[in-house]
């Protein structure tokens, strides 16, 4: 039933955590430049906005996944019911 027997992916959580923090720092340390470009509008910059959001969803999403698994929060059943 439970998948609790698997090891907790602490190492992966740390690696993805570092990548996530680096990505956030890259944006927020250069926030004026980033905002300058991404609020210009137009097709190219609109695509960059969406790609940025998707990139963070991938990186931070992976970190969040390993983080909650490391905290012991794993699904109980496959298929849900």
């Amino acid at each position: 039933m439970a998948t609790n027997t698997k090891e907790r992916p602490v190492g992966k959580a740390i690696i993805w955590g570092i990548i996530t923090v680096a990505a956030y720092l890259a944006v927020f340390l250069n926030v004026d430049t980033v905002m300058g470009y991404l609020t210009r509008g137009g097709g190219v910059f609109a695509v960059i906005v969406l790609v940025t959001a998707l990139f963070f969803s991938f990186v931070h999403g992976a970190f969040a996944n390993y983080l909650i698994e490391s905290l012991g929060l794993k699904p109980l059943t496959k298929g849900g019911h």
Binding site: V27, V31, V34, G41, A46, V49, H60, A64
Partner: peptide, 30 residues
Amino acid sequence: AMGGFVDIRMVLIILAGSLIGVQVGAVGTT
């Protein structure tokens, strides 16, 4: 985004919380 209205700072800050929340919620359904 075509009109340049998206504030990417706020999007990323909200995502910092919501990407954890959405996965906890998904696990919660099981």
